[in-house]
């Protein structure tokens, strides 16, 4: 049976995040020929509606309010619940991002709905949709179905392919007025720690360093490599504990789980806690001077050698490739 699915278009720094386009693709599959309704929540976000439509949304509902300029669970849940109340959808899809993780349980609780979070793949469509999600820090997977009620899903960035953008698609863009009130959280300030604009969890390329980087200074060459490849920098727990970089970069059982197209592990031994955070990456490269390092067991390609020799060479080769292609 075809379904109506609401997808939240997540806005960051004035632009839609890629995961929202992936969420639309997921919603299309769940909708099974039904309707995908984009939801935009924020302050002055209407201009982004057409991009949601270009990526597959059939129409878009916009809730704008000065109190929605920054995300708060109270503000955004009021807005999303108002959209759900108006549309009575069969399902909701959000990105499994910081915002999605924070917002979805509250909205699910309000709707007395189950929530399938961190989905990496969907099999089947409509009522037969089966959701695949990693468990046990990515060391196993489970397939789950929604038994009854609304199909509420968050999708992990970088796993479900978005539909091709079609700027010629058209759809209705309507605004919905919601009285946003009683915000119990005030965001005083946002401090940007991430040194580039590429978000670690959404990055197609992650260059990650371990204790082998030897210093905070050593980490800088990883940033240079990441910049050349349009990627983000990550780290092992060892590197974070040693003070070479911020804990916000940590990948592993505690820390972030990433699934980029390319993961380059530099000077990382490959402790099992670290592997839990990256082993499902599509292609893994390991660079380590110890040929016995555990990381080589999960790597597709390995170079045994001094990383301080290898990385500068790698930066040059990647630059050369960019120039030539």
């Amino acid at each position: 049976m075809s379904k109506k699915i609401v997808v939240l278009g997540e806005v960051r720094d004035g632009a839609l995040r890629n995961v929202s386009f992936e969420a639309i693709a997921a919603a299309k599959q769940i909708a099974d020929g039904g309707e995908v309704v984009g939801a935009l929540i924020g302050d002055q976000v209407t201009s982004l509606a057409n991009e949601l439509i270009a990526y597959g949304a059939d129409r878009v509902i916009v809730v704008e309010h000065p109190h929605l300029k920054t995300y708060t669970p109270d503000g955004f849940s009021q807005a999303l619940l108002a959209i759900v109340d108006q549309e009575k959808p069969d399902g909701i899809v959000l990105g499994h991002t910081s915002l999605g993780k924070d917002l979805s349980p509250k909205v699910a609780s309000r709707l007395q709905a189950g929530l399938v979070s961190d989905v990496t793949e969907i099999e089947g469509a409509g009522d037969d949709a089966v959701f695949i999600r990693p468990i046990y820090s990515g060391k196993a997977f489970e397939k789950v179905k929604v038994k009854d009620g609304i199909i509420f899903v968050t999708v992990r960035p970088n796993n479900i392919a978005p539909l091709e953008k079609d700027a010629s698609r058209t759809g209705d863009v309507a605004s919905l007025t919601v009285d946003i009130q009683n915000l119990r959280t005030i965001i005083k300030e946002v401090i940007r720690n991430a040194s580039t604009g590429v978000d670690l969890s959404e990055a197609k390329v992650v260059v990650s360093g371990g204790r082998g980087m030897k210093s905070a200074e050593g980490f800088k060459i990883l940033q240079e490599l990441a910049d050349v490849l349009g990627g983000a920098v990550g780290a092992s727990r060892g590197a974070c504990d040693a003070g070479y970089c911020d804990y916000s970069l940590q990948i592993g059982q505690t820390g972030k789980v990433v699934t980029p197209d390319l993961y380059i592990a530099v000077g990382i031994s490959g402790a099992i806690q670290h592997l839990a955070g990256m082993s499902n990456s599509k292609v893994i490269v390991a660079i380590n001077k110890d040929p016995e390092a555990n990381i080589f067991k999960v790597a597709d390609y390995g170079i045994v050698g001094d990383l301080f020799e290898v990385i500068p060479l790698l930066i040059e080769e990647c630059k050369a490739l960019k120039v030539n292609s």
Binding site: A140, E142, K143, K145, G149, P291, K297, G302
Partner: peptide
Amino acid sequence: KIETVEVYLPPVKSAGRILQGELPDQ
């Protein structure tokens, strides 16, 4: 409200390729 249909392990990854030769060539 959610039903687990199946639990499974990811496919075992075969060992990768360790490149050989001089570092610049690798």
